[in-house]
């Protein structure tokens, strides 16, 4: 084996590591953008402006165990475009795509709010997607949570979803 051949696998490995991380992140971004696009398309409403800035701020102030927060908020939604009750779950699954699995759903008539939490496994981490809907507002938050944070979600899913970022940052 030549010296060049001995080095190249290491170089390839390093290059792969450097390349894969941003690619994975960009893939997550694209997925989030597609979800936002589908909501926009269904309700014929654009998300609020400066959500990029809001995401940046959210990432600076993020709690431990959470990263890559992305958020989008919609206001003045036409409530007549909400699907009927029996079709809501299927509608939401269509919006978030097949890669996200339903995890928690809290529908509160008292608060007039519905929170849908979906999870997608990413090796030793999870991507959580929290969608909160009110009659004329919606907030979508995607975040990557580490296993410790995820175990808190598994321990008490309803409480965690009630305290999820989407319940505070947008649709309220």
């Amino acid at each position: 084996m030549t010296r060049r051949n001995r080095i190249s696998p290491t170089l390839w490995g390093l290059a792969g590591l450097l390349l894969l991380s941003p690619v994975a992140s960009r893939a997550g971004d694209r997925q989030f953008d597609a979800i936002v696009q589908r909501i926009q398309s269904h309700y014929q409403k654009r998300p609020m402006r400066f959500m990029g800035l809001a995401s940046f701020v959210a990432n600076r102030a993020r709690p431990e165990g959470i990263r890559n927060i992305k958020l989008a908020t919609f206001e003045d939604l036409d409530s007549s475009r909400h699907p009927a009750d029996p079709d809501f779950d299927a509608f939401m699954q269509e919006i978030v795509g097949p890669e996200f699995h339903p995890f928690v759903k809290v529908r509160s008539r008292r608060d007039g709010e519905q929170t849908f939490v979906y999870a997608k496994e990413l090796g030793q981490a999870f991507n959580l997607l929290v969608v909160t809907l009110e009659s004329d507002e919606a907030c979508v938050v995607q975040m990557r949570v580490n296993p410790e944070e995820m175990s808190k979600w598994v321990d008490d899913p309803p409480a965690m979803s009630r305290n999820a970022p989407a319940s505070h940052s947008g649709a309220r």
Partner: peptide, 15 residues
């Protein structure tokens, strides 16, 4: 209020 929780095998293993 209605709460639905779905925990699949991968989440349970991790937890």
């Amino acid at each position: 209020e209605v709460v639905d929780v779905t925990l699949d095998e991968s989440m349970l293993k991790l937890a």
